[in-house]
Design a binder for these strands. Structure first.
Lengths: 129, 129
DNA sequence: CTTGACCTTCCCCTTGCAGTAACCTTGAGG
DNA sequence: CCTCAAGGTTACTGCAAGGGGAAGGTCAAG
């Protein structure tokens, strides 16, 4: 099948599929007209990629996951470790965002938000928050 | 004062300060030797920038905040709106991360993590999660 | 035959700097 | 006076993960 259909089935963009090809993540076959031809297997791989990306894995990490997926001698320990590491990163980002949110909430609540130039947000940013 | 001292006082890198200059966010004076000379006012501005960045504002948004900060005819309403919008973005990111976390937690918990090739993580990524 | 919807490659743009190279300046010490 | 390390300067490249758009080939339908 052609690129846009494959992209749609995998929940990705055509641009992304072309990109994955340039970085050697997935090489579809080519028809006589030069068009990319994605097999059903390719689409499954693309779905794998899409799901892993949606879980927060970077493309290079997806490459590792795919390698494990294809390796019959893999150890589930390895995949689990990747997931646990990603979990820690996500947790870290959550903490950062929560602090930002708290700070922003405090700023917003301290500001009248009227037409006066007096603004607690700007003065707190100008001094210590 | 020279760039690295200014950077240190603001909690930023020298590279960042040079970058802010190239994008016309903050133009320090220059000494006869060509060195950048940061005034105390400059450092305060840099601290403003650093705090706003730490709250999640993009550099272009910081530029707007700075413009408001310098505008005596500003309305606190405008600053508050920027903060509220940022809050919504942060909230959105938090939701996304929370879903990722849940999904990853589920994947990790379903996997034995031993030396067997049987791996629930990989099979769930390969089929629907 | 033509039209419009696909497809192709190629190149620039994004964010916020970090890294590196090649080259000045400055202050301290022998 | 000379040197050397620790600063400073510009300029260029690179990162992640594609998006946008140009210029041109292909395909199916009317």
């Amino acid at each position: 099948m052609n690129i846009s259909q494959a992209a749609q089935r995998a929940g990705l963009s055509s641009k992304a599929l072309r990109y994955y090809e340039t970085i050697n993540l997935l090489q579809p076959a080519r028809g006589p007209n030069g068009y990319r031809e994605y097999s059903r297997d390719d689409v499954e791989t693309l779905q794998f990629i899409q799901r892993a990306r949606a879980c927060g894995f970077a493309v290079e990490e997806v490459r590792q996951l795919l390698a494990l997926h294809r390796d019959p001698a893999r150890q589930s320990h390895d995949a689990k470790q990747l997931v646990e590491e990603k979990l820690q990163q996500i947790e870290q980002q959550l903490q950062t965002l929560k602090i930002m949110k708290k700070t922003l909430r405090g700023l917003a609540d301290s500001c009248a938000g009227d037409d006066s130039p007096e603004c607690a947000i700007l003065s707190q940013l100008a001094n210590r928050v």
